[in-house]
Amino acid sequence: MKPVVELKNLSKTIGSKKIIDSLNLSLYPGQITGFLGPNGAGKTTTIRMMVGLMKQTGGDVIIEGISLRDNFEEGLSKVGVIVENPEMYKFMSGYKNLVHFARMHKGVTKERIDEVIRQVGMQNRIHEKVGTYSLGMRQRLGLAQALLHRPKFLILDEPTNGLDPAGIREFRQYLRQIAETEGVSVFVSSHMLSEIELMCDRIAVIQNGKLIDIREMSETKESYYYIEATPLEKVKELLVNEGLAVEVFKNGFLVNAEQQQIPGIIRSFIAEGLEVFAVQPHKKTLEDEFLEMTGGGQIAESYAK
C-alpha cells in the first residue's frame, strides 16, 4: 500500500538541543495510527511540523508525494487538522466559523458545509455564537472544520480532551467510520492510553525525540501468565530452567509462556513440593507496554526483551 504521509528524517533542533531526531514514519490510508510518548518527548513538536506551525530544521514531510517544504499549499490542502482544543472565533456563529475556514480551501461549496454540519450533528445550533457552545459542541465544530475539504489525512492532537465518555465513544466511532469509508489516514496523539488502545490500528511511540517503536495493535499479543508460589527463589530457578523470561510482579512472577507449557510447569512445581497459590493468564495493557517501553514509572527489573 502506498503511504499517504511519510516523515523522512524529520528533525528539529532548537539551539543546540535536538528536540526531534531523524524521525521516519509512514502512515497508510484507512488506518488509524496512535502517537504516544511521555510529556516532552516531542509529540506536539512533530505534529506542528507536519501541519506547518513549525519549520523543520532537517528532513521533510511528504503528503501524497508532495513535499511540504517545496509546495506547502498543495501539500497541506490534503490535510485536516485539530490541534488540541479547537479554538474558534467566539464572537461569530459556528456557521460563520465554518464559512471562514472554507474560504481558505479551494472548492468547498455551501452544500459541502451543510453536509459536514449534518455529519457532526450540529444542525440545531450551528447559527448560535460559538461562545455559547459547550466543550463537546466545540469539539464537534473542530472536527467539522477539519473535514470540510475532504482531507486524505487527518491529524489530531489530543482530540478527546474534555469530552464526556459518550462523546469520546461517538468520536471514536466517527473516526473509524471516515477512516474506513473514505480511506482517510488518521494520526492521533493522546495521553489517554486506553483511548488509543480502543481507537487505533497501529501505534508509534516516541521518546526523547526518537521513534522507539511502531507496532500493529492487531498483532497477536504475546501471552503472559501470572504465577504465585513459594518459595520464590525456587520458583524463579525452575522457571528459568524451563527457558522462560521471568519478571517480578506483585507477590509472584510474570512469565512469557504459551498455554500448552502451563500444565508442565505446574506439574514440576508440585513435584518439587512448591506451594502454588495462583496461575492465571495475564493481559498486558497498552499502559504496561508503554511504561515498559519508555521506562517510566516503577517497573521492576525486566528480564524480558
Binding site: 506547518g52 506551525l53 506547502f72 499549499e73 501539500g75 497541506l76 490535510v79 479554538e87 467566539k90 481558505m104
Partner: peptide
C-alpha cells in the same frame, strides 16, 4: 484567542 493555530494550518502561505 488561540485561533492562530486554526488560521495557519491551512493551505495558504
Amino acid at each position: 484567542q488561540g485561533t492562530i493555530k486554526m488560521l495557519l494550518t491551512r493551505p495558504v502561505k
